[in-house]
């Protein structure tokens, strides 16, 4: 099928977990591990779904999302944001920037997988809104 995910995340263990989960489901997982160059990576990879962490070294996930939504990427590119901070204002901020889905760590594998599938197929994700 060739469905692809771009994972922008800096925690090695979490990268390993998500990669394992998605690759097992047949996704192509590309990786970017810092804030700098993330937008370019999205443009270059042109993935079906972007999984974006909030706290990245160098540049915050919000900045990256903002730039993507300002025209750097296609407008309907699904972006799933992950945060470990768990603050309401972060969720609001993300939505104001036009995030497709916002999930708080830790998440269940099933939930993550389902959300990525939903996003890729243009459905409203069942969870994480």
């Amino acid at each position: 099928m060739g469905r692809s995910v771009l994972l922008i995340e800096d925690e090695p263990n979490i990268i390993e977990a998500i990669s394992f989960l998605l690759e097992r489901d047949g996704w192509t997982v590309r990786l970017h591990t810092e804030g700098e160059g993330a937008v370019e990576a999205v443009v270059a990879a042109s993935p079906d779904v972007v999984v974006l962490d909030v706290m990245l070294p160098g540049r915050s996930g919000f900045d990256i999302l903002k730039e993507l939504r300002q025209g750097a990427a296609r407008a309907d590119l699904p972006v799933l944001m992950l945060t470990a901070r768990g603050q309401t204002k972060d969720r609001e901020l993300a939505h104001s920037y036009g995030v497709s889905c916002f999930m708080t760590k830790p998440f269940s594998n099933a939930e993550m997988l389902q959300t990525v599938r939903d996003l890729a197929e243009g459905r409203a994700p069942a969870a994480g809104l």
Binding site: N13, A17, F20, G86, Q87, P106, N109
Partner: peptide, 25 residues
């Protein structure tokens, strides 16, 4: 305090994410 709680949350949730994910596998 908000910053601190944010940080603590981050520091706690990050290892827990790995723990949960891998224990599910």
């Amino acid at each position: 305090k908000d910053d601190f709680l944010s940080q603590v949350s981050h520091e706690l949730r990050t290892p827990m994410t790995s723990i949960r994910s891998f224990s599910e596998f």
